[in-house]
């Protein structure tokens, strides 16, 4: 990782110096030892650019705004981030001609409590999109894991247990909106969760409905487009397992409509904007055994 990191930083400096790109989107040291913050770099501050095992933050969403700037931006993109970026390109949210994608090898990212949940369930080390890749053998190992195991475990509980589980989990929410703000699939300019009349940006809700059903609505809004990048669960200060909602949708779509990975193919139509005449009726839910 050390070797890859050095090469990445050297290459970023080189591209910036040559004028091929105007700025670099990467990470700098954050407030805590285990934290790296997304940042933009130019000639003046490029020495602050870091790439190490704490660069968990997915930079792809930043490109929605950054790619509107004059000139080209170099974006450092990890394999899982490349899926999010590709999905954004598919939705025409990022200007492809304004970015240079440098795929950076990743051995799994860490946070305060060690390996990130999303990396425990890494979806692979391929780059869905890149102009250039810097990695090595050590960055290509994919851990063996079953990301739907926890979903299945929940499904096997009784409805009362499930209701109690979600009630206790979701009651912890402080509606900081971090999960929505970080989500690369949540790029609506006008979001249902904001109340433009409240005078408090990105916080207050229009009414209690959006407030009470926040988590389900959010998960449904990104269903089909969610790449399972795990950022929502990573940033939640309350430790709510939001990925269990996303993965439930993914698991259902996989079983009902065939395996699908959002972001893998920028030309694909995701399961919710697609159909076949032979699709299952909604009664399959009713008819499946307990």
């Amino acid at each position: 990782m050390q070797a890859v990191a050095e090469k990445v930083i050297a290459r970023a400096k080189e591209l910036l110096a040559s004028g091929e790109v105007q700025r670099v989107l990467g990470w700098e040291k954050g407030e805590f030892d285990y934290e790296r913050t997304p940042a933009l770099f130019e000639q003046g501050n490029i020495d602050k650019l870091v790439y190490d095992k704490f660069c968990a933050a997915n930079l792809s969403k930043k490109l929605v705004e950054v790619s509107k700037l004059e000139g080209k931006t170099l974006a450092l993109i990890k394999p899982c981030d490349s899926l999010s970026l590709n999905q954004l390109l598919c939705e025409h949210r990022v200007k492809r001609e304004n970015i240079y994608v440098l795929g950076v090898g990743c051995k799994g990212m860490e946070g305060k409590d060690g390996l990130c949940m999303k990396c425990e369930f890494c979806k692979g080390k391929n780059f869905a999109i890149s102009d250039e890749v810097i990695d090595d053998e050590s960055c290509r190992e994919v851990p063996q894991s079953d990301r739907f195991a926890a979903v299945r475990e929940l499904e096997e509980k009784t409805p009362e247990e499930r209701y109690a589980f979600w009630r206790s989990e979701l009651s912890k929410c402080i509606r900081c909106n971090a999960c929505r703000n970080v989500c690369p699939a949540c790029t609506c300019i006008k979001c249902v969760f904001d109340n433009p009349d409240s005078g408090v940006a990105a916080k207050a809700n229009v009414d209690t409905f959006e407030e009470n059903q926040f988590h389900i609505i959010r998960a449904f809004h990104v269903a089909g487009r969610c790449t399972d990048c795990g950022e929502c669960s990573r940033v939640c200060p309350q430790g709510i397992p939001l990925h269990l909602l996303n993965r439930k949708f993914i698991k259902d779509m996989d079983t009902l409509y065939g395996d699908y990975q959002a972001g893998e193919d920028a030309e694909a139509r995701h399961p919710l904007i697609n159909f076949t005449k032979a699709d299952a009726e909604p009664s399959v839910v009713l008819n499946r055994g307990e």
């Binding site: 929940l154 499930r162 449904f220 269903a223 909602l245 259902d252 009902l256 159909f275 839910v285």
Partner: peptide, 15 residues
């Protein structure tokens, strides 16, 4: 049909 199938399954998941 697809949307409702997924929603119903999610409601079931929520208890």
């Amino acid at each position: 049909r697809r949307r409702m199938t997924l929603l119903f399954s999610m409601l079931d998941y929520l208890g």
